[in-house]
Amino acid sequence: MVTLDFRTLTVPVGIVRILEVIFTCISFSLVASVGHSTNSFWTWCMFTWCFCFCVTFLIIFLEFTSLSAKLPISWDDFTTAFAMLATLMVLATSIIYPIFFTCSSCGKQIGATVLSCLTFILYAVEVGLTRAKPGEISGFLSTIPGLLKVLEAFVACIIFICLDYNQFSKYPGLQWCVAVYCICFIFAVLVIIFTICRLLSLFPAPFDKVLTGCNVLAVLMYITAAVVWPVYSFKNNSRPSYCSNMVLCPWDNLVVIAFMTCFNLAAYIVDTVYSFRLVFFISRT
């Protein structure tokens, strides 16, 4: 039986979600009114706003009708993971869209950019509101290590987007780096899926110990990638002169990958520190 819960619309997180729906709707409406583009970055921006609008609206509807409690998933983990993912997606969109599609006389595009930035702030606020507080019993994805898993998977996706087969297929070292990105990404996604679907009991060992071991391995693998990728990518490979006339040169993707590799390495180090603290300190108290 469906029961309407008006309280879900008046609590702080409910108000934030309503504003997210409004702002994302206005953002993609403004951009759509300007005209369609076949540019992949335009497609990414529109997908981000539409995706976040639809999922946030679905979350509001399911909580308002109390149907969320009947779903066979960890609802808190799902909403927190989505809020973190939406924060990262909208942040990327808020940077990409103005770089490629705005100008001093582009009123609608500027308006969409401003609303996108506000939407990013709202999703970041939602992450803060739904994140597990110290001493609070909650799902794994509501904790800092859980949010870091979403961040690590998202950064890996950015790396995959920037990869060019013709660039990394020439050197075994770069192929090793791609293998590192894939292996760590797959594990992060499996952790997210298993957590949301409440399947962590299927792990062959205690989850916290499995997580710690994999995080340590990921740190070691990413250290090698952070060293090997720049060595093979930039050795005798300076930025081409024709790139000066391009907004985003294909060579620049190598720089983005190198930066994102170091960024993800830092994320895995922080994740490992939290995992060690969880296993060897908190569990003993």
Rank of each mutant, 00 (worst) to 15 (best):
I60K: 02
E152K: 11
A124M: 11
S33E: 10
I282N: 03
C249F: 04
C162N: 14
C106L: 06
V155P: 06
P134G: 04
K235C: 01
I161H: 09
F41V: 07
C214E: 14
S201V: 08
Y181I: 11
A69Y: 08
L91P: 01
T102W: 01
V21M: 06
T272C: 12
T143H: 06
A86Y: 02
R239C: 07
F82G: 05
A153S: 14
F78Q: 00
A156F: 11
F101N: 08
Y123I: 01
F82A: 07
A267P: 13
F57A: 15
M221K: 02
Y165T: 14
A267C: 15
V255F: 13
P230W: 04
S33T: 09
Y268W: 15
D271L: 09
A225C: 09
P72R: 01
V255W: 09
I159S: 07
P145L: 04
C262Q: 11
V255I: 12
S244T: 02
T8F: 06
F23E: 00
C182P: 01
L174A: 13
Q109W: 06
Y181H: 14
F154L: 12
G14N: 07
A266S: 15
C214A: 14
Y268C: 10
T24Q: 13
V279E: 08
C214D: 11
V279W: 02
L190A: 06
Y97I: 11
M246I: 06
D5P: 02
S241D: 01
P72I: 00
P206I: 04
S244C: 01
V178N: 11
V16Q: 12
R131T: 07
F51N: 08
D76Y: 05
T3S: 15
K235D: 06
V34C: 10
M89K: 01
D252C: 03
I193N: 05
A81F: 12
Y274L: 12
S27R: 01
T195H: 10
V189N: 06
V180F: 15
I99N: 01
F82T: 04
C52E: 11
L58G: 08
C182F: 15
Y97M: 09
F207Y: 01
L265F: 14
M89V: 00
L254Q: 12
T48V: 15
F194A: 04
Q167E: 13
R131M: 13
T113H: 03
S68G: 09
T43Q: 13
F47R: 13
N236K: 03
C25W: 10
L217F: 10
F259Q: 14
T3R: 13
L91K: 02
S142N: 01
Y123N: 10
T212C: 10
T65N: 12
W49Q: 12
S275F: 02
R284E: 11
V279Q: 05
A226M: 03
V247R: 07
L202Y: 03
L141S: 08
V216Y: 09
L67R: 08
L85G: 07
P134I: 05
Y123T: 09
I257M: 14
M46E: 13
Y274K: 04
C197I: 00
R277K: 07
S201L: 09
A81Y: 11
F280S: 08
I18M: 13
G173M: 12
A83I: 03
C103M: 00
I59N: 09
L278S: 08
A258N: 05
S40E: 12
S27M: 12
N236T: 00
L118P: 05
L265K: 11
I137E: 07
C184A: 13
A92H: 07
L88D: 00
I183E: 03
D271Y: 03
P204M: 02
C52A: 13
I18N: 04
